[in-house]
């Protein structure tokens, strides 16, 4: 089925079976492999992408259902090759990961949180990432990364502070 997808601001036309998930379409047809298949039944969150501004599970959405939606994947987050967003850099600063498998989904979930909430509490950060399972870290350094990024992003916007 011919489907037009808007991924990271760019239009792509793919021909997919209706049964193909958005996750498999991103990974196989568009070779955007930053979204990972962890459980394929909507529990682990490793496949998280942002659809129309909100983090969703790309394994729980058919590719054909994404037609016309704005999809942002982890590949659309870094500002330029070799550069990191403030949030990505914060994950590196606190080592908010180990194996890196859940990391793209975790970052997208946190990215969406910080867009709406510049001063999240620990509870709000926990809630925002609660749909993303990390088996390595116990979440401590992930929560720390999101809080650090929020602080740095606030700093960047404050007129009397040097940008982070």
């Amino acid at each position: 089925m011919r489907t037009e997808l808007k991924i990271n601001g760019k239009s792509h036309v793919v021909d997919v079976e209706p049964r193909k998930s958005l996750l498999d379409c991103l990974r196989e047809d568009l070779r955007l492999v930053g979204a990972h298949a962890g459980c394929e039944h909507g529990v682990c969150g490793a496949c998280t992408v942002i659809v129309d501004g909100t983090p969703v599970r790309s394994c729980l959405m058919l590719a054909v259902q994404a037609e016309g939606s704005e999809v942002v994947t982890i590949e659309g987050i870094a500002p330029a090759p070799g550069e990191l967003s403030i949030l990505q850099d914060a994950f590196c600063e606190t080592h908010g990961m180990q194996c890196g498998f859940c990391t793209p989904g975790m970052i997208l979930a946190a990215h969406a949180l910080l867009r709406d909430n510049q001063e999240p509490t620990r509870e709000e950060i926990v809630e925002a990432i609660s749909g993303n399972i990390c088996r390595c870290t116990g979440y401590d350094q992930i929560i720390e990364a999101v809080a650090l990024a929020a602080r740095r992003m606030r700093g960047r916007n404050a007129p009397d502070q040097v940008s982070a």
Binding site: G42, G45, T48, V51, T54, P55, V56, R57, L60, M61, A109, E127, A128, S130, G131
Partner: peptide
């Protein structure tokens, strides 16, 4: 109900 990403869809 579920968690934020499932409530989104």
């Amino acid at each position: 109900v579920g968690h934020p990403p499932t409530r989104a869809r």
